[in-house]
Design a binder for these strands. Structure first.
Lengths: 344, 344
DNA sequence: GTGAAAGCGCTAACAG
DNA sequence: CTGTTAGCGCTTTCAC
């Protein structure tokens, strides 16, 4: 039986009594714009201090104010890359005076039940990471006037804000880079097939090849994990004719690919070029020195938070979709185009 | 000017009106133990469905009920290891019907201001990860009747629950293992010097050595990062006499140490044994195959959540401190004791 | 069982 | 400026 909180909670009434003023005065003391004399303010503050009073945000929000709570819906919080995103979000939101209500979701099914929960907490806004919103749910958010921003996901059908990296463009840049490097047999190792991120990256890559009259030489499927990259590369290398370059849907798989290649006696990039996507921390390690696309997490998150905060603080019907370019980071896991000068 | 939420929020009154019953009836419908006829229940549910009604938890909590919100205070959310901990906490808490309010803190200073914020949200409990609570703050929590559990931190002075891995014991096991392996010149690469985790691990290790009449051969300092492990090992290897085993305060540094050793032309473990702590994901990679202590994250988190939930739901003055043993995971980065049989 | 009514702690008109 | 007075949406006696 969840006992009631040890009731000695001190409320504004207690403070008012001690200070010998009205309860409203206490409220005004904690309301930025309110008109109250400095003298009274001090009296209240003194009493509050003495009692250890803290305004109750919950009660405040009940009377029509914002909760300053943002629901962050996320899958795979434990994944290092997602963790960086989450860290950036919570920090950035805190800077704007918002707090994060974390919803750890397993799959798109979990989402459908998590979101109503968040809504129950009267969140002022919702960040959706790596999950796609269904129309009916989006409609409910809209009905409650709760702005939503999707991160690294887009949906043309559902009217919802979104901010993300331009995966297709990044993949196209990678294709160009490999083409210029003289590669002719390009393979792609896919991430989870139905993730939009994977689809965008593959689309961009094949488009890039197509622009030069080329096609994918081979294709394998993985699940974004190191092991998947390792194994898929094993299959690729077992072919009668080997690819001369592999684009992995993310860095983890690319790192697995490099390890596999080396274990198979191949030199990277002399015998095989490998490129990834994300620019995870490990991509910069000397051992891998992975050529990849940097997803500017801070920039992405900042943009997403700005979109959301803006939607909260000055509501509008307009919907914004923001695509932010990634940056090609040239390291040593892929053969360089002749005459290529690496930037610092 | 934070506009008021588009007011069309549907409340229990609306539902009551539609259903033609009293507002109290709809409240009872959503109160598990309440006495209400099945017939009325259905009427209410139907009306609620039609209106898209969801009880407002905020309002409910105002009238003396729990918020079912747990404040999770964390530093370095972006660190892969902490990310796993956070993921485990949010999942486990959700299983118990609690939600996580994430407080991203920079240092112990940030803590002091973050906690009052959490308290404003009337959290039912607080999880403190990798941060130590000061007495005054702990007192405030206690005054508000908000239970706290510290994770992987202990403090004898401050009366607060805590759950964590038995770092000292783990380190002692490591020392024993290395001693049995015939090592005689043991070095320690410290993590952040003032982190209690680091202190415990060092203490355990030196105690383990002392029990066999040995002392630390060398000591370097790092900050838990790959680079720090790499560099510190460089310094260690530059000595006139090299250590024959290195215990790094965590796995990341151990991995850096291995890379450094190899780059210096040493074989691991033939020329140098390296052991770490945590059992991070990468420790299992064939390239490193790191002998380390597994921190049973799920078990630790489960225990912490249980302690907290218990403290919330059946308040007591008792304070519990739980130390959970880590498990020695023998891989190939350290020379084995003669006759040692590896378990699967 | 069910409804009426009194708060929970705070904000926001509204009069002085 | 300051105090008074309604609520915000919900739970909970208390009668019926």
């Amino acid at each position: 039986m969840p006992k009631k909180r040890t009731n000695d909670t001190v409320s504004s009434v207690d403070v008012a009594r001690l200070a010998g003023v009205s309860q409203a005065a206490v409220s005004r003391t904690y309301t930025p714009g309110a008109s109250i004399s400095e003298k009274m303010r001090q009296k209240v503050l003194a009493a509050a201090e003495q009692l250890g009073y803290q305004p109750n945000i919950i009660a405040r929000s009940l009377s029509g104010k914002a909760t300053r709570l943002i629901g962050i819906v996320m899958v795979k919080i434990g994944d290092p890359f997602y963790a960086r995103i989450l860290a950036a979000f919570s920090r950035k939101l805190q800077e704007h005076g918002y707090w994060s209500l974390l919803l750890n979701v397993n799959d798109d099914l979990g989402l459908e039940e998590a979101l109503p929960q968040a809504l129950q907490y009267q969140v002022d806004g919702i960040v959706l990471t790596s999950a796609t919103l269904s129309s009916p749910i989006a409609a409910r958010c809209a009905a409650m006037g709760v702005p939503v921003v999707m991160f690294n996901r887009y949906s043309l059908e559902v009217a919802v804000n979104s901010v993300g990296c331009d995966h297709a463009q990044g993949a196209r840049d990678l294709a160009d880079f490999l083409l210029k490097g003289g590669h002719r047999r390009m393979a792609y190792i896919a991430g989870e097939e139905n993730s939009s991120t994977n689809q965008e990256r593959e689309r961009g890559f094949t488009e890039g090849l197509a622009a030069a009259g080329q096609r994918l030489f081979a294709r394998e499927s993985g699940d974004y994990s190191y092991a998947a990259g390792f194994d898929a590369t094993g299959r690729l290398l077992a072919r009668p004719e080997r690819p001369d370059a592999i684009f992995c849907a993310n860095d983890w798989m690319a790192i697995g690919a490099i390890d596999q290649a080396r274990q198979s006696g191949l030199k990277v990039p002399e015998d095989l070029s490998v490129v990834g996507f994300d620019d995870a921390a490990m991509a910069a390690w000397p051992r891998y020195s992975l050529t990849t696309i940097n997803q500017p997490i801070d920039k992405l998150v900042m943009a997403a938070v700005e979109v959301l905060v803006n939607a909260i603080e000055s509501p509008t019907e307009d919907r914004v979709i923001k695509l932010i370019p990634g940056r090609l980071v040239v390291r040593n896991s892929a053969r360089l185009p002749v005459g290529h000068k690496k930037s610092a």
